[in-house]
Design a protein around this nucleic acid. Structure first.
Lengths: 118, 118
DNA sequence: GGATAATGCAACTATATCGTCATATAACGA
DNA sequence: TCGTTATATGACGATATAGTTGCATTATCC
């Protein structure tokens, strides 16, 4: 047994772990990036297609894509003039689905409470 | 074929939905808030206990708690002078577990690649 | 080689957020 | 009532981030 392991009280995360986790959540904290991911859920797309689909500037899309890439959520593949983007981490779908259905639940329960209160 | 109906292909999220989802992820995008949630996973705590545990200022902790509260992730319960905080949305545990284990996987695969490359 | 198209990159502005200090509110006890 | 304790809130400076503009780079076609 290798000495004592600074009993990290089982579930307390280190500062590094907290920062890494926070960084990944931060990548998902902008509507524009979520929209890009949402589009990519339908299959890989070129940067140009994403620009058209979002009606945003090419530079802006490119920057958001690089944030997502650095967070490991998407990856790129070059083909001729174009760069194809695709979701590289399956966790993206799961996370968004979870958040989405949770929000739906919440809103429905609020709607019920609202109706009941009339 | 009707002109341009912007066929909202089934899974495209509305701007409102995107903003709501982004807002919830944003609440999870700060190490300090994750740390507070991490502490609360061990059971409810008073604001003062959280201040002590984090060695941060009372004002700062209080502000982060209100962000988490507005995002619906925690709730408060008053008892005498103290306010007890507790996790109000079970999704918090799931999301953090997922992110955490995903990061672990990633780092391990990187470590393997590193070892293999020596 | 030269023109054009797709993408990436740097500098800038405007806005948002973190953390701190000082102060306000609220509950309890004397 | 007054004073103490626990928490919330408002103002402020420092930093970070989104989006724009302009330019650089790379690949394709002539």
């Amino acid at each position: 047994m290798p000495a004592k392991k600074k009993s990290v009280s089982k579930k307390e995360l280190s500062q590094l772990a907290l920062e890494l986790i926070a960084g990944r959540f931060r990548a998902l904290s902008e509507p524009m990036r979520l929209r890009l991911l949402n589009l990519l859920m339908g299959g890989e797309k070129t940067v140009g297609q994403l620009v058209d689909a979002t009606s945003s500037s090419q530079a802006n899309v490119s920057k958001h894509l690089s944030v997502l890439r650095e967070a490991g959520m998407i990856a790129m593949r070059k083909e001729g003039l174009s760069s194809f983007c695709f979701i590289a981490d399956p966790i993206v779908n799961e996370l968004c689905e979870m958040m989405c259905s949770r929000l739906r639940e919440e809103m429905e329960s609020k709607a019920q409470a609202f109706d009941a209160g009339i």
